[in-house]
């Protein structure tokens, strides 16, 4: 056998050992499920918290402003692993919720701080003349915000928000710390079981990459749709 063929057969043996034998691919697949579940719920929680905190930061009320400021400050100033472990082992220690939901809450709380800054910037980026035009027609502040400012802000912040989602998905790779079997943890488990590091770790990387590629392409479609009114 030539060296090339030998190399290929070694690789394919390793592939079978790491991903096929003992149905190890099922472990990775269920890991993909966990990653998606946690990320999706976290994104939703993150957007809700982000909107609330953004409104606090933009409000004229000093107390609300302070709440928003402290939230963003604390979340940005501590590592997400620390936050995840604090929330899982301390704050939710006695609460009987599925692990993945608690993890999603932790990531949502974390993401909310970043999303709030994105939303705040997006709202401020809409020209003040838009607000004046709405108010001059007799719309109240809430109607002007929801019908005129926010629809334009959404378009402005969409790329930044997509980026935040992608960061969030990759961030969830630390859920192994609280005993959840996501993609990363599954790859790690296979590494320990097979005493082989490169194959499962490259596998893990490829799975994350493909997942995020699909998401990126989908979100780009949505963005093109949002940009419809920019056509000249």
């Amino acid at each position: 056998m030539t060296g090339m063929q030998q190399w290929f057969s070694r690789i394919s043996d390793l592939f079978v050992k790491c991903f096929i034998r003992d149905d190890r691919y099922k472990l990775l697949l269920s890991g993909v499920g966990v990653t998606i579940k946690v990320s999706l719920l976290a994104v939703i929680i993150g957007i809700l918290i982000g909107m609330l905190i953004a409104l606090c930061n933009l409000s004229k009320n000093k107390f609300l402003k302070a709440v928003g400021g402290v939230y963003t400050d604390v979340i940005r100033g501590t590592p997400s692993v620390t936050q995840l472990m604090l929330i899982y082992f301390v704050i939710f220690a006695t609460v009987n919720l599925p692990k993945w939901i608690i993890a999603a809450i932790a990531f949502g709380i974390n993401s909310g701080a970043y999303v709030s800054e994105i939303i705040r910037g997006g709202i401020l980026s809409v020209d003040h003349g838009q607000t004046e035009a709405g108010r001059s027609l007799g719309l109240n502040a809430f109607q002007t915000m929801t019908r005129i400012v926010i629809p334009q802000a959404v378009k402005n912040i969409f790329p930044a928000l997509c980026n935040e989602f992608i960061v969030l998905i990759k961030e969830t790779a630390i859920v192994g710390y609280v005993g959840l079997m996501d993609i990363q943890k599954a790859g790690d488990f296979i590494k320990s079981a097979t005493f082989n590091a490169p194959m499962p770790l490259f596998g893990t990387a490829v799975i994350y990459y493909v997942l995020i590629k699909i998401l990126t392409l989908t979100l780009r479609q949505v963005e093109n749709h949002l940009r419809k009114s920019d056509v000249r």
């Binding site: 020209d127 003349g129 838009q130 004046e132 035009a133 709405g134 108010r135 001059s136 027609l137 007799g138 005129i148 629809p151 334009q152 378009k155 009114s229 920019d230």
Partner: peptide, 16 residues
Amino acid sequence: RQKMGMVFQQFNLFPH
């Protein structure tokens, strides 16, 4: 304000 229409220098049409 519903009784008072206003036209601005910068138009301020709603671009969306």
